[in-house]
Amino acid sequence: MTNDERFEVRRLIAATPAEIFGVLREPRGHVAIDSSGMLQSADGETVGQVGDEFVVHMDREALNDLPMGKYDVTVIITRFVEDAELEWTISGTIQPPIKHLYGYQLEARDGGTLVTSYYDWSQIEDRYRGKVNFPIIPEAGLRATLGILARTVEQR
Rank of each mutant, 00 (worst) to 15 (best):
V50P: 15
V153H: 03
T2Q: 11
V81Y: 04
A15G: 07
Q105N: 06
L66P: 00
L114D: 15
V153Q: 02
P138W: 06
Y119R: 09
P67V: 03
Y118P: 04
A32R: 06
E139A: 10
T152S: 09
T16G: 07
L66I: 12
E5W: 14
K99Q: 13
R109H: 14
Q123E: 14
V31G: 05
E154L: 08
L114S: 05
G48C: 09
S91F: 00
G69K: 07
D110Y: 09
F21R: 06
A62G: 08
F7R: 10
L142C: 15
V75R: 09
G22P: 03
D83L: 00
D83R: 03
A84E: 12
I76W: 04
G44E: 07
Q95R: 11
Y128T: 02
F54C: 07
I148L: 10
P17T: 01
S41R: 10
K70N: 01
D4K: 14
D110I: 02
H100P: 04
T78I: 10
S122E: 11
R156D: 05
T78V: 10
V73E: 15
L149G: 05
T93V: 09
D83T: 05
P135E: 09
P97C: 02
W121A: 03
Y128D: 00
M58H: 14
N64I: 02
S122Q: 00
L63T: 03
I137P: 02
G69Q: 03
E8P: 00
V132K: 05
R109V: 04
E53V: 13
D120P: 03
Y102T: 09
W121R: 10
P138C: 06
E53I: 13
T78Q: 13
I77W: 02
E61N: 15
K131H: 15
I76R: 14
G141K: 09
Y102P: 01
D72C: 02
H30Y: 04
S117G: 12
E87I: 00
I148Y: 10
I13Q: 12
Y71V: 00
E107G: 01
I90R: 00
W88Y: 10
E107T: 15
Q40E: 08
D34W: 11
W121V: 13
E107F: 09
V9R: 01
G29S: 04
Q40I: 13
V31Y: 12
E87C: 03
V81M: 11
A42P: 04
T152N: 03
D43G: 09
D52P: 09
H30D: 12
L106N: 02
R151C: 07
A14K: 14
T46C: 11
R25S: 11
E45K: 13
Q105P: 01
A62Y: 04
T74W: 01
Q95H: 03
F134M: 06
G51K: 11
P17Q: 14
E125I: 03
Q105R: 15
A140N: 11
V153L: 05
F54L: 14
N3A: 06
S91T: 06
L39H: 12
M58L: 11
V73N: 11
